[in-house]
């Protein structure tokens, strides 16, 4: 590459530049949907450019499924084959919940990089930044679910609810992950560094996933723990997903997960938006 020695002048000719500076007309403000879609597009482009970030949504579920199936299968359910029937829907919920933590990381990184200031200075529907990120993440959830179910089928998982049941379970799962993500977006906004985001999110997610019915039936637990487990949103999600996949779902299961989603969104979405609007403003 050769650099001219003396001509340290303009980047391009004046006329092109001046023409580029003559757009004063402002299009109509984008709708909430198109702003969200533009930001979801951004999330998908990132996956396209750095496919390695899909490593966690493929390897993590494989690791979890294989490990827990063979580790606990014999002890808990008597046989691996039987335990898989119980575990796979639970592992799905757990995996997707864990992956949803990365939403927090992404938002925190955006804030520290300055792109956040750009977004805040543009006059579009404010929640679109978060909604767009969550929409983009649903691709990751879907992929992770696909990996878990495929692996489950190989290990002997036979969902009694058939394809329809599995499909409905996935819809519920996506809805749940979307609702749960609002907790992480709040953490992502509140924490100062990506490291602290990871720490706080892990602290929150471990009790959430283990104190649930993902791995074991809670009937053997002490009653105080059963009380905790029964209102844990992960439990409610796992029951519904399990029921749908095996065709044994009750309306109570569905109502439970829908209420959990409504509460999560109802509490954490307004909190997140409040923090988002006031971030650095005072």
């Amino acid at each position: 590459m050769t650099t001219p020695q003396t001509t340290l002048t303009r980047p391009v000719d004046d006329a092109t530049l001046r023409k580029a500076f003559s757009v004063r007309e402002r299009p109509a403000r984008p709708s909430a949907l198109s702003a969200s879609l533009a930001l979801a597009w951004r999330a998908l482009l990132k996956i396209k450019h750095v496919p390695f970030q899909l490593f966690d949504v493929t390897m993590f579920p494989i690791m979890m499924t294989v490990m827990f199936t063979f580790l606990f299968g014999g002890a808990i359910a008597g046989s691996v084959g039987e335990y898989v029937q119980f575990l796979i829907p639970g592992i799905l919920v757990m995996t997707v919940s864990m992956i949803s933590m990365y939403t927090a990381l992404g938002i925190n990184t955006d804030i520290s990089k300055g792109i956040f200031d750009r977004f805040r200075s543009l006059p579009f529907w404010r929640p679109a930044v978060l909604v767009g990120a969550l929409l983009g993440d649903s691709v990751r959830y879907t992929l992770a679910s696909f990996v878990v179910i495929t692996l489950g089928l190989i290990l002997g998982f036979r969902p009694g609810g058939g394809i329809m049941g599995v499909a409905l379970a996935l819809v519920i799962l996506l809805l749940f992950a979307f609702s749960l993500s609002w907790i992480w977006t709040l953490i992502g906004l509140l924490m100062k560094t990506p490291e602290s985001v990871m720490m706080v999110s892990s602290m929150a997610s471990f009790p959430l996933t283990f104190a649930s019915n993902v791995f074991v039936d809670p009937t053997t637990m002490p009653s105080w723990l059963q009380a905790v487990v029964s209102v844990n949103p992960i439990t409610l999600a796992a029951s519904a997903v399990r029921g749908l996949m095996h065709g044994t779902v009750t309306s109570g299961d569905i109502a439970g997960v829908l209420i959990a989603c409504a509460v999560l969104v109802g509490v954490f979405a307004p909190l997140t938006m409040y923090v988002y609007r006031n971030k650095n403003a005072h």
Partner: peptide, 30 residues
């Protein structure tokens, strides 16, 4: 609606191309 800011730390997205960055901002402007 009438101003623009270019901050001390470039407010562009590292993990997108230059073209994609501009398209995204243009989309967000409507």
């Amino acid at each position: 609606r009438r101003v623009s800011l270019t901050g001390q730390f470039a407010s562009v997205d590292d993990e997108l191309t230059g073209m994609e960055n501009l398209i995204m901002v243009a989309r967000l402007l409507g």
